[in-house]
Design a protein around this nucleic acid. Structure first.
Lengths: 340, 340
DNA sequence: ATAAGTAATGTAATCGATTGCAGAAATACA
DNA sequence: TGTATTTCTGCAATCGATTACATTACTTAT
C-alpha cells in the first residue's frame, strides 16, 4: 500500500486538531475563516486524500450502490448504467456491478452486499430472481434500500421504476391499425417475464378493444432474443393466413424476425410490417430502419439512482416516492407501412 | 444502518477472543478442530457477516477494482466486463465501474480512486486518455496497479492486454485476396486511436506485401461508429473506380456501410465484399451475416483481471507478466465473396 | 462588573476487524 | 521428572476519520 497522508498529517501542518480538519472538509461553515484557510493550505501541501475505508467504517455507510444485472453481456443495459452512474457520481457515490448469475455462482447471498457494508443500496434490473431470493430480500431489514428498475416482481413491495409498457403497446397496436392493418400478430418475450406479460396483456386488450380478430397462433412465444425472432419468422412463414403486421416485444426480436424473412425473400414492410420495442441504438440503422417504442434508458437510470439515493439518505420512512413511471414514445420508421 | 452482529458477538457466543474468531474465518488451519467447530456454530447462530469497511481499513485493501470505460453506452465492452467480473468475484473482489467522461466531469482525478482506498487497482479500457492524465498515472506510485486492456497508450509503460490487431488485419486482407480481390479499401477507426493505427498500419503493410495497389482515397477515415460507416459508404459510392472489397476497422462500421449501401440499392457481397472487426453478437444475425475478425472478449476480460490481481496481491516487483496478447480468428460469413 | 450566551476548537471514544507478541497448554525428548 | 518445542489462544494496539462532549475565548445584556 502506498502511504498517503492522513488527517493527522494535515492537522500537524495546519497546527489544529484532527477534529477541526475533519470539520473543515465536511462542514466548512462551522470553522472560522482563518483556520479554514490554514487547513486548505495544509491539505494542498500534504496532498491529503480522504481514506474512504476509514470514513465508511466510522459513518456506517459504504458510499456505493450495487447494480444487479441478469446478465452483463446484454447491451440493453448499458445506457441505463450510464444514467445511474451519472447521478451516483454526482453524489459522491460509486457504482458496483454484479450479475445475478455470478452472485449465485459464487455462493454469496444477494443481501450480503448490504449486510457487509459493501453497498448502501441496490438497483435490481432483473425481474426474474428466484422466488426465495425475492422473499429473503423482502423480509430483510434493508428492503427499503432495494429498488427495481425496468423489470419488477409481481406481488412484491419493492420500490420501482418502470416504463409505460401498456401505453407503449397500445401506441404500437394503434399505429399498425391506423396504417390499415387488421390482422396483427405479437411475438412475446420469455415466459414468466413481467415485461412480456405486461406487453402481451396490453396487446390482447388493445386488439380486442379495436375489435380485431386475434387467433391463438398469432401470439408467438419468443424470448427477446435475435434467435427467437428468427424462429418466430419461420412460424409466420408457415401460417396459412399470414397476419399483415407483427408487433415484437423487443427490437432484437424484430431484427431477428426481419433477418430471417429476408433470407426467405420476404420484404419488410412490403410483405409484412414489423415493429419492435425499446428503440435500441441499432434500430435506426437497421435495414429497414425499425419502427419501435422508445424507452428513455438514460432517464430510467437517473430516476432509479435518484429514488434510491433518497432512500439511502433518509433513515425514516418519510414520504418516499415508491413507484416512478417513465413515459415511452412511438418512433415511426420504415419497417411499417400500409398493407398491400 | 441495520445492526448486524460483529466479531465480538461471535466471540462472546463461542466463548473465545475476537482474535480467534478472526483467525478461524481467514486462516482456519491455525486453530484447533474443536474451536473451529464452536466458532462456526456461533457464526451461524449470530448470523455474522464480516464488515468489509472495517476489514478494508485494517488491511489497507479496498478489495475492489475500478474498470474505466471511455463511455458506458458502448455495447462493445459488456462481454469484457463479464470476463473481468467473473474473475474478480471469484477472488472476493468487487468491480467498480466509471467512465472517463464522468470522472472528468465530476472534477475528480483518476488516481484518487487508488489514493483514497476505493480501489486497489484499475483496468483501463480507454486508450484515449488525456496525455497529462496518462503522465500523472505513470508517475504515480501505484502505476503498477494500472492495466490497460484492448486499448493502450503508445509510449507508456503500463501493463496491458491486447488483441492480435496486426494478425487479425493480415488474416482479413488475405481472406479478401484469396477470394480474388485486388482492389481493397479500408475504413479506419477514429483519428489518434491506437487500434485504428495498428489496424491501418497492418493493412497498408499487408496490401503492399501482396503487391496490391492502394490508392490514398481507399483509406477512408471513420470512427468505429455506425454513422461513420454510412458516410464511408457514400464515399465508396462516389468513387470512379470502386474497390471490390472493403475492410472495416469495426463491425459497427461495416454494418453502417452495408446499411447505407442497401439504401442505394447496392448488394453485399454481390457488388462489394465487406468485412468488419470484433465479431460482435449481432454480426452473425446481420443481413448478410458479417465476415469478421473475432476477438474473445470474455478472455480479454478474464486475462486482464487475472493479471491485475497478480499485481495487486504481490507487493514486490516479482516476475509479473507485463503484456498479454489475445489471439483473434477469422470468421467467414456471407458478407464476403469472390468479385464478379 | 457579572452572568449568560455564542462561536471556535480540542479531547478522546468510537466504528469492527486484524495481527504482533506473549503466555498457556500440550506434546516430544532426554 | 525436567526441559525444549510446538500448538493454540488471548491481549491490546492499530488502521484513519467522525463526532459527542468539554473547554476556551469572546460578545452581549443586565
Amino acid at each position: 500500500m502506498v502511504k498517503t497522508s492522513t488527517l493527522q498529517d494535515v492537522a500537524r501542518v495546519a497546527k489544529v486538531s484532527t477534529a477541526t480538519v475533519s470539520r473543515t472538509l465536511s462542514n466548512p461553515d462551522v470553522v472560522s475563516e482563518s483556520t479554514r484557510r490554514r487547513v486548505s493550505e495544509a491539505v494542498k501541501v500534504t496532498g491529503y486524500r480522504i481514506n474512504r475505508a476509514a470514513r465508511n467504517l466510522r459513518t456506517q455507510r459504504a458510499h456505493s450502490v450495487l447494480v444487479l444485472l441478469p446478465d452483463l453481456t446484454n447491451p440493453f443495459f448499458s445506457t441505463i448504467l450510464e444514467g445511474i452512474s451519472r447521478h451516483l457520481s454526482q453524489q459522491g457515490y460509486s457504482m458496483l456491478i454484479a450479475s445475478t448469475e455470478q452472485v449465485h455462482a459464487s455462493g454469496e447471498r444477494l443481501i450480503d452486499y448490504l449486510d457487509d457494508a459493501r453497498a448502501d443500496g441496490m438497483i435490481v434490473l432483473d425481474g426474474g430472481l428466484d422466488p426465495d431470493v425475492v422473499e429473503m430480500l423482502e423480509n430483510a431489514p434493508q428492503a427499503k434500500r432495494i429498488l427495481f428498475a425496468c423489470e419488477w416482481v409481481d406481488g412484491a413491495t419493492f420500490a420501482s421504476v418502470r416504463c409505460q409498457n401498456r401505453q407503449g403497446t397500445r401506441a404500437a397496436v394503434n399505429h399498425l391499425f391506423d396504417l390499415g392493418h387488421r390482422n396483427i400478430a405479437h411475438v412475446t418475450g420469455p415466459v414468466g417475464n413481467v415485461l412480456m406479460q405486461a406487453r402481451k396483456d396490453a396487446f390482447v386488450d388493445e386488439t380486442k378493444k379495436l375489435g380485431l380478430i386475434l387467433r391463438p397462433e398469432w401470439l408467438i412465444a419468443g424470448d427477446f432474443s435475435l434467435a427467437a425472432g428468427c424462429l418466430a419468422a419461420q412460424a409466420w412463414i408457415a401460417m396459412h393466413n399470414r397476419p399483415t403486421a407483427v408487433f415484437c416485444a423487443s427490437d432484437q426480436l424484430a431484427m431477428g424476425f426481419i433477418s430471417e424473412l429476408s433470407r426467405h425473400d420476404f420484404k419488410v414492410p412490403k410483405d409484412v410490417s414489423v415493429m419492435g420495442f425499446d428503440d435500441i441504438d441499432l434500430a435506426e440503422q437497421f435495414i429497414p430502419p425499425l419502427t419501435s417504442v422508445r424507452q428513455d434508458r438514460l432517464l430510467i437510470g437517473e430516476t432509479a439512482a435518484k429514488m434510491l439515493m433518497a432512500r439511502v439518505k433518509t433513515p425514516g420512512d418519510d414520504q418516499l416516492e415508491h413507484a416512478a413511471v417513465i413515459p415511452v414514445s412511438l418512433v415511426t420508421r420504415e419497417s411499417t407501412a400500409a398493407p398491400k
